[in-house]
Nucleic acid binder design. Sequence first.
DNA 1: AGCCTGACTCAAA
DNA 2: CTTTGAGCCAGGC
Length: 103
Amino acid sequence: MKKDGFFEQVYVLTKKIPSGKVTTYGQIAKKLGTKDARRVGHALHANPYKEVPCHRVVNKEGRVAENFAFNGPDEQISRLRAEGVGFVSKCYVDLDKHLYILC
DNA sequence: AGCCTGACTCAAA
DNA sequence: CTTTGAGCCAGGC
């Protein structure tokens, strides 16, 4: 287990997302002082911590990572919906209402 | 070591 | 409005 500060920061911030809220890769990336949102995506893709609700992290369009979800796209969407997240479309969450603003 | 791809985003044409 | 290019950087082969 090697220490990747960047990865850990991503996990920590992601875990801080309250139920019924979502955030974007860009927000996390900027919060960590980088412009590379892709690394955030990679961090979550590596996601060694099962406690990290990666399904609460979406892209700027509010779209979930259906292609790389755990059991399938429906699982991820279903979880968000169960947490009270509103969907404007099948795979798109309502960012205007549920976007978690990092501080 | 080098090339290609990617759970991204923004800006310009 | 859509399409393209560029920025950033790590992981896989």
